[in-house]
Structures are given as structure tokens and as C-alpha cells.
Design a protein around this nucleic acid. Structure first.
Lengths: 196, 196
DNA sequence: ACCTGAACACCGTTCAAGT
DNA sequence: ACCTGAACACCGTTCAAGT
């Protein structure tokens, strides 16, 4: 039968479990049960839980698409890359938490960074400025996503007796438009930096 | 003797332990031992570990200073607020992780948000735009800090056999300057939005 | 080579008992 | 009112034993 336990089957199951029940609910024992196997069997395909989490992150990063197409302007390429990043977060809510807790140094994690830096260099940013441009862009993208989970959720309730006008204040409803607003801000700012 | 266990003493100890050994090392049992007490004694002053973590976050947020001084330009007030935020992260490495994992809805968490929104409204941003300006600014600040822990650390090593030029590529050494670079980008972008 | 089950050293938390 | 100790339901992981 095709039910042999394998590394990809373990990763698939782990991502599925995290997607459905959240990252805190993911334990080796629960994952094993979900796969109809004993907890210790997992260790034949993954050396530790940390390695499992890193594997899940790589699994998700595989969907990241940063176009290198020279027909597109550099801002357009970055805009699409950022949007692809946001899409991963939408499909896998644990994405950001994995990204910020798992330190991976494999090619699959470095490739995206190099791709973005390459775009900045081609656009005309020199060494240090390419690095800073990278930090500004990724900073915004990362932070915006983080806020959706923190800010918005955390602020749906109010202290004291005041009514809750805050939930609507932040996140105007159209998250996609909110995201593009700030993305535009950063990209235009970088364009201006390049011209001036 | 002044060794009576108290909520503030518990919070002080928890922050200290997290500062020194990292958030993952903070357990109710270890914290109790540090305070020379049994684990269950903590529950007389804090209802749960989640409440302890929220308490720690409020503890840290108390140091956040967002000036309201009308003598300062709105960009200067925001710049100082953002810098104060970064300073908290410097003193307490767990700050961001607590902020993104603990959903608090007390006044101490809402006050900073309202302060920033007030500054944007006074600057001339109307409802939805104030919200988006807020998201863009906080997004950058949050994301930049996150990167320091992720990006930089995660990328100090390289895949394959290529030498490690990446560590120096990102984070040009002067983190403060790197931070101000992107902060400037966002604030100038918002200024332009207001004028145009 | 892969799976299993018992075991170890941890967790947060409940509950009954002490003062 | 506050502290304690045993206990419960979990963790990740080691190790010896099975196939």
C-alpha cells in the first residue's frame, strides 16, 4: 500500500495540522496520531521537532515567487514578490511565526533574499543602499502581516467603558488595499531615493 | 522581611528571567525557583502563564514614550516614538515576541495606538488614511526589528560552498542608521501623500 | 531500515491540605 | 489569605527491543 511513512508525508501532515489547528497545537505525538503511527516513528524521517518546523518553513517558501522577468520594472517585480509573500501567509497562518522562530540557512531560504537584493542592485542601488532598501521593504511586508494578527485582533476590544470604534479604525476592511498603500509608499520612496 | 511574594515581584522576576535566558526558558517552575518559592505560589498573584506573559508585555510597554509635545513636528514626534519602541526591544529581546503572541486589550496597550493615530489625525490624515498611515509606520518598525532576529541571524551562514559575504550584506553594521533610513522613507512618503 | 513501547525529564495546572 | 505537595494530562526525546 502507499501508506509508507516518508519525509514529505510527514511535512505535508505537519503543515496541514498547523493550518487547521494552529502551530501551538502541533506536537510530535498529535502529528503521529494524525498519520496513524507512533510518535517515535517520525524520528526516522525528521531528526527533531526543530527540524520539522524548519522543513515546514521550506515547504511554504517553495511557493514564494519573485519574478526576474526583465520586461517588468523593478518596482513591479518587487510588488509581485511581496504579494506572493502575503499569499503564503494567507494560505498558512503559521508562516510568519515559523519564519521568525526558525533560523534556516539552506538555499531555499537564501534564494529569495538574493533575488530581492539582485533586483535592487540592477535598479541602481549600490552595496550598502541595496541592503537598506532590502531591510525597508521586507520590514514593511513582515510588519504589516504581523499587525493583522496582533494589532487588529488585539484591538477589537476596548478598555474602560468606551464603545469599540477601534476595530473599524484599523484595517479599513480591504486588507489588500491597505497592504498596497504602504507597499506603494515604500517603493515610491525608494524610487525617489534613486532619482535624488 | 521584605521578601513577601507580590504581583510586581513576580513580574519583575519574569522579565529578568526572560531577559537573561530567553522567553522559551521561562517556565512557571523555573520562575518560582528563582523567587525561592514553590511553583503553585505564583498562582496567587497571577491567574495563568498567559496572564503572566501579558503582564510582562504591559510592564515593558510602560517604557514606551510617544511625545505629544505640540512644539515638535508630527514626523519628529513619530520618529521619537519609533525610536523609543526600538529601545524597548534593545532592553528586552522578548518584547516583540510577547507583542505578537499576547493579545491584550487593556488601556496600557491601547494608549500607544491611540496616541499615534491622534498624531496622524492632527497632521491632517482623515479616517481611513490615518489608519493606513498607522499600519505603514508600525508595519515598518515591527518588521525591521523582526528582521534583526531573523534575517541577519538566519543569513550569517550560506548554503553550498560560497563564502559568507551575506552577513555583511545585510545590516551594514550601524543598525541605528539602517533603522532611520527606512523610517525616513516611510515618514517622507507620508508627508508627500499629505501634500499631494 | 523502519517501527514500537516503556521510560526520563520536563511542562501548565487542579485540588486537597496545611498555616 | 497565602503557601505547599502530590497528582494529572500533557510535552520532546533516548534507548532497548522488536520486525
Amino acid at each position: 500500500m502507499g501508506n509508507t511513512l516518508t519525509r514529505t508525508r510527514v511535512l505535508d501532515g505537519a503543515v496541514k495540522l498547523a493550518d487547521e489547528q494552529g502551530l501551538p497545537a502541533l506536537s510530535m505525538r498529535k502529528l503521529a496520531a494524525e498519520l496513524g503511527v507512533e510518535a517515535m516513528s517520525l524520528y526516522n524521517h525528521v531528526p527533531s521537532k526543530a527540524a520539522l518546523l524548519s522543513g515546514m518553513l521550506e515547504w511554504m517558501l517553495a511557493a514564494l515567487d519573485i519574478p526576474a522577468d526583465p520586461e517588468l520594472t523593478w518596482t513591479e517585480r518587487l510588488r509581485r514578490g511581496a504579494t506572493s509573500f502575503l499569499a503564503i501567509h494567507r494560505s498558512h497562518p503559521s508562516f510568519i511565526q515559523l519564519l521568525t522562530s526558525q533560523h534556516i540557512h539552506t538555499g531555499s531560504a537564501l534564494a529569495p533574499t538574493e533575488a530581492v537584493l539582485r533586483i535592487f542592485r540592477q535598479a541602481g542601488f549600490d552595496g550598502p543602499d541595496a541592503s537598506r532598501a532590502y531591510q525597508a521593504l521586507i520590514g514593511y511586508v513582515l510588519g504589516f502581516i504581523l499587525q493583522q494578527d496582533v494589532g487588529t485582533i488585539g484591538l477589537t476590544c476596548c478598555g474602560q467603558g468606551q464603545a469599540c470604534a477601534h476595530a473599524s479604525l484599523l484595517g479599513s476592511g480591504d486588507t489588500e488595499a491597505d497592504f498596497q498603500f504602504g507597499l506603494d509608499l515604500v517603493l515610491r520612496g525608494l524610487e525617489a531615493k534613486l532619482a535624488g
